[in-house]
């Protein structure tokens, strides 16, 4: 059985959020080096939020994958 598109959409959103979060983490160190403390802490916070969002997306796609693959195993 072919896996549905939904899985890949969630995966893509997850990967995009993950890359964004990594960028924010790197930016936070850069801001700290340029003595922008509040900006740095805020971007670290944004990085953590985006990372947890990415993980939630991965989890959703894992559930969809589970439903579809689990179906195939039963047949």
């Amino acid at each position: 059985m072919k896996l549905s598109l939904k899985l890949y959409i969630y995966l893509a959103i997850g990967v995009a959020l993950f890359i964004l979060s990594a960028m924010f983490f790197i930016w936070s160190v850069g801001y700290m080096e340029h003595a922008m403390i509040a900006t740095s802490l805020l971007s670290a916070l944004i990085g953590f939020s985006l990372l947890s969002g990415a993980l939630y997306m991965f989890r959703l796609s894992a559930y969809i994958y589970g439903i579809e693959r689990g179906e195939r195993e039963e047949h």
């Binding site: 993980l55 894992a62 559930y63 994958y65 589970g66 439903i67 689990g70």
Partner: peptide
């Protein structure tokens, strides 16, 4: 946790 969900896909758990 998510990696284990991908490695052992289970319909029951997901539903």
């Amino acid at each position: 946790d998510i990696v284990s969900l991908f490695l052992y896909p289970s319909k029951r758990v997901a539903l």
